[in-house]
Nucleic acid binder design. Structure first.
Lengths: 231, 231
DNA sequence: TACGTTATTGAACAATTTGTTTATTATTGT
DNA sequence: ACAATAATAAACAAATTGTTCAATAACGTA
């Protein structure tokens, strides 16, 4: 709900906040990518405060005031970097999805036969280990944003980014050729299944190692509920 | 964010708003369960306004003011029935979960063999038809609350209520006896899978009939992604 | 170390929102 | 027609929002 909306968006300032029109060409950071320490500190403080408050009260159980009090920063500082709380959350969400997209480019040539081979050797697929490793690295934020009081919009995005792509690359040939309504449910079914595994792992505090999770994910791939499971 | 919190909760008034301490014992509804028409009308108006605004701007993209303006009702009327918007949403969520719990009591004695038998006859399982029938009946609210801008808390509750119970009743015997960590992921996997099917159906506007959805759900039950699928 | 740059600060501000209260009006069930 | 009560309009203090400003502090560089 904007009320005194004079400065509309100015999203460019967030991308290149340093070295914009410096008068003499001197006294400014030589490397544009390097951020001022204060900015880094502030953003980290807001991130930590966001996660803590999301866990405690849920995404809409606190105000910008609360966030700044928790981060021990002035409210003006918050509005220097973010439009509102949604913008703050979106920043981290987008960051994660970008990283995952980059991670997925490493497994474009994955085949079902490869998966079966690794499964027989009882070795975890390297891509899956890397995936769970990254998720673990972002565990604190993911736990907050995927849990209750998190952001509804994120889970579907994560599902589409990771799981749907993963399913569709391994999808059987006769499926890609026959796009019936059932195929869509087939994809939704398994994509949601793997998102559920990821979510359950994060919810329960990531007890298993990324290697163990990779093995669990692979094992589930060769199971159907309508038959007994071999231990 | 309560600010002038003199009346703490008083949730009892919501349950029995009629016939509380009537002076003469007359001039009050004889059947306590029957609600005043005005109350019914108001609640329906708030419900419709809620769904519309959730679809348009998301659960936190509007205020109580907006809601009352959309419902064409006074703000005091809203606070007569609900604490806040979260309370309004929770009312409908709880109602649905209660109905589903009741529906599930009708299938306590479902066996895997029954499912296989119906599958062979290519007939939809009556319980599944009833389930999708009910979901379709509540389609407008479910579409809003499960979609983006909905309530994060609801999907896990729906999953636990419907899917997890469903999976655990059909779960193979050797599983209930051996509660390893993998079994939890097994349950999370298939429960999330079926929630995904339900969500996808609702998201895409419930094109298929409840009978068709029951057949799709049964077909998916006998499929594993690691093998080709028989058409 | 000293310099110019810039992020942060504290304070103020109007516009909204929130939750509640009051007296008045309009509907309701009998 | 009558009594109960839901809905209404208006008002209210407390709180939130988004912005602006001058003053201060921390920063990167030379």
């Amino acid at each position: 709900m904007p009320l005194l909306k004079t400065k509309p968006a100015d999203a460019i300032d967030q991308e290149i906040p340093v070295q914009k029109r410096n008068a003499h060409g001197r006294h400014a950071p030589s490397v544009p990518g390097l951020q001022d320490r204060r900015i880094t500190r502030s953003k980290k403080a807001f991130r930590d405060a966001l996660i803590a408050l999301m866990e405690e009260r849920g995404l809409n159980g606190f105000t910008v005031n609360d966030l700044c009090a928790r981060a021990d920063l002035n409210r003006g500082t918050f509005y220097n970097h973010y439009q509102d709380i949604s913008d703050l959350v979106a920043t981290f969400e987008d960051e994660i999805l970008q990283d995952l997209e980059q991670l997925q480019s490493q497994m474009k040539d994955l085949k079902l036969s490869d998966l079966a081979a690794y499964r027989l050797k009882k070795k975890p697929l390297p891509f899956l280990v890397a995936l769970f490793d990254y998720l673990q690295h972002e565990g604190d934020f993911l736990h907050a944003v995927l849990g209750p009081g998190g952001d509804t919009r994120f889970a579907p995005r994560l599902r589409d980014s990771v799981c749907t792509n993963l399913i569709q690359t391994i999808l059987h040939e006769r499926y890609r050729k026959e796009p019936t309504a059932f195929v869509n449910y087939y994809v939704a079914y398994f994509a949601s299944a793997y998102l559920g595994v990821i979510t359950y792992w994060i919810e329960t505090g990531m007890q298993e190692s990324p290697e163990e999770m990779a093995l669990i994910a692979m094992r589930l791939f060769f199971i159907k509920p309508g038959e007994s499971i071999k231990l």
